[in-house]
Amino acid sequence: MNKNFEIEVVDLVKKYKELVAVDHLNLSVYENEIFGLLGPNGSGKSTLINCILALLRYDQGKVYIFGEEMTATSFKIKQKIGYVPQDIAVYEELTVQENIDYFCGLYIFDKHQRKQHVDEAIDFTGLDKFRKFVPSKLSGGLLRRLNLACGIAHKPKLIFLDEPTVAVDPQSRNRILEGIEDLRKQGSTIVYTTHYMEEVEMLCDRLVILDQGQVLVTGSSEEIISNSSLAQSIDVVIFDLTDSVLNILEQEPEISHLTYQDAKLSFKTNSNRYTLLDLLNLLEEHNLKPVSVSSEKPTLNDVFLEITGKELKDNV
């Protein structure tokens, strides 16, 4: 157990009968970071979160939060946690505002302070026009936003978000992502679960990629991509490429899959050691002007594909 970690999960195993949903998993989350849990459907993200929160009993391992062991009766720890479950968890009989106020009231007892918190959460999720609506009158995306508001209104120190942006339109999604960034600025630590890798790349300081309950890789998204053996592909349209330049490129050890056909030069390169800039410099030296240049960086999806042979994204 390390005191500097906000969350530490040690050798966690959770089985559903035969199925191992979380498989000897270790991870640590630092204070005040946005930590991503990325993985395809059924990889065990929600199960992991539910184990960390002690909602689920697990077969093996330990979970520490704020340096203390987390159990179902760690009410002191729970008091500082916010949780946005994957499925909508609100009272159908209460309005938007009442729902947020109810859940916030489980943590914040002072009425005055609570009112302020509730207003801020409504503002944050852009639900101001819908304060008096009951959940059944909200669209799917608005409902998601309410679900989020109920989990964060009390400004918890540690927030678990289980796919909070599913079914939310891009505009609102950006707003939510910005909001999460704000929460972090206000001092919260955030564990963010998703299978949208763009969100993770944009938002998270560090992440793990999960598959079948195991951590495949961990680190920042740049680290993960550059540590992989994946190459960047570069395509250049250029008409008068000389053989000498082509030769130089062929000699370059970082370059592979080199072709030049119908004025189109294509090759792959390990993204760190031979970059597009290197190529452009070379062409300039030889007074050559490309018509167009394009490069494609590998994504987390490519990393995942490389490791597992599967696509990270499901067919959404």
Binding site: L55, A72, F75, Y83, D87, Y91, F103, L106, Y107
Partner: peptide
């Protein structure tokens, strides 16, 4: 039903709060 985690989603949310 509404306060037990394995019976409803809101039960989950209620269960992670600091209230018994």
């Amino acid at each position: 039903e509404h306060i037990i985690a394995n019976q409803s989603e809101r039960g989950k949310r209620n269960s992670v709060s600091g209230v018994t």
